[in-house]
Simulated assay, not measured.
Amino acid sequence: MRIAFYGSSLLSSYWNGAATYYRGLLRALAGLGYDITFYEPNVYDRQANRDIDPPDWCKVVVYDGTVEAVKATALEAASADIVVKASGVGFEDDALLDAVLIAARPQALKVFWDVDAPATLAELRERSDHPLHRALKRIDLVLTYGGGAPVVEAYREMGAADCIPIYNALDPETHHPVRSDARFSADLAFLGNRLPDREERVDSFFFEPAAYLPRLSFLLGGSGWADKPMSGNIHYIGHVPTRDHNAFNVSPRAVLNISRASMALNGFSPATRVFEAAGAGACLITDAWIGLEQFLAEGEEVLVARDGKDVAALLQELTDARAREIGRNALRRVLRDHTYAQRAAETDRIFRRFVRTPAVEAAE
């Protein structure tokens, strides 16, 4: 079946945390026989900061960041059996969604794929005139990359025909154990872009423990932190391309996951970093959120902190041997239960359940 997928970027993770989610899931779907074209706008310097070349398992179309290009690119949805518009494309999202829905053939499966469902739902609650309210009447299915029952129920209450989470996972071909790299040596490392609904939590879970533990070394990766006041034991290295993620994860004694405020409040929203770190065999410390036990076991496969004081206490108690043990346990768990091959098989079952017409089946 042919999929037209409109998202932020497949080629670049620069200011684009969904990149590895798209890559892992779509590559696995391609392995199941799907013919995929990914459409991404040339915005935010992402094309100047590509992490990968266009892959052989997916055609990538990069279009200009203009209204005219959006309209022209949306017309290509007419050739697809499954049309996907993701949230957070980053340029004229509402106009793109409307144009894609108009262009899609009546018998095509029309999907809205929300990669930040708690934030999207908050916008929908605040704005009764949000264009997505009207668009949901024309959308066959909402998929999300997290959120659990709270997100499913909320989307259905908003008028979605159905909503199903497809969680983040591990692609073991891209995220796996490697040798440590001195560039990323630290007692604790955190990788994440500076975002308004995350910064306060980063202050609490990362910057405050660093200030409290001046003899320990802290490593900070991600875009936007250059002008942030920080203690002298924090080494800021800026954007970390995906080719360095494995070394970034395995080289420190532990790595830290900090959820965005909306996702922590909602729960059931493991970030891509959780599975990437576990897939590299890293010792992961994560902030606490509802549903964590569905993915990793606290104390055995992951360490959990309720605040910055917990982070500091965990670091002071954590030995190298204990860190390695947790990392090994986490790697075994994600390889067993949380790979993109498994997520793709689930997505394939969903697509086949919702596809209704002989015209689509004949395109296989």
Rank of each mutant, 00 (worst) to 15 (best):
G7Y: 00
G7F: 00
L10E: 03
W15S: 14
Y22F: 15
G24F: 05
L29G: 05
F38D: 01
Y39I: 04
D53E: 15
V60W: 05
V70N: 03
E76L: 14
E92R: 14
A95D: 04
A104N: 12
A108P: 11
D114Y: 11
A117V: 06
A119C: 08
R125E: 10
E126W: 09
D129N: 14
H133Q: 05
G148N: 02
M158F: 15
I164A: 02
P165R: 00
I166A: 12
Y167F: 04
L170A: 13
L170I: 10
R179W: 06
S180N: 08
S180E: 15
R183I: 08
S185H: 14
N193K: 04
E200Y: 10
E200H: 13
F205V: 08
E208V: 05
E208P: 03
P209G: 02
D227Q: 11
M230N: 10
S231M: 06
H235K: 15
H245Y: 15
A247I: 06
V250R: 10
S259R: 12
A261F: 13
S262Q: 09
L265T: 12
S269Q: 10
I285S: 02
A288Q: 12
A288V: 11
I290F: 10
E300N: 05
V302M: 00
R306V: 02
D307G: 08
L318S: 06
I326L: 09
N329E: 13
V334F: 07
H338A: 01
R343Y: 02
F351K: 00
R356N: 03
T357D: 13
P358E: 00
A363K: 13
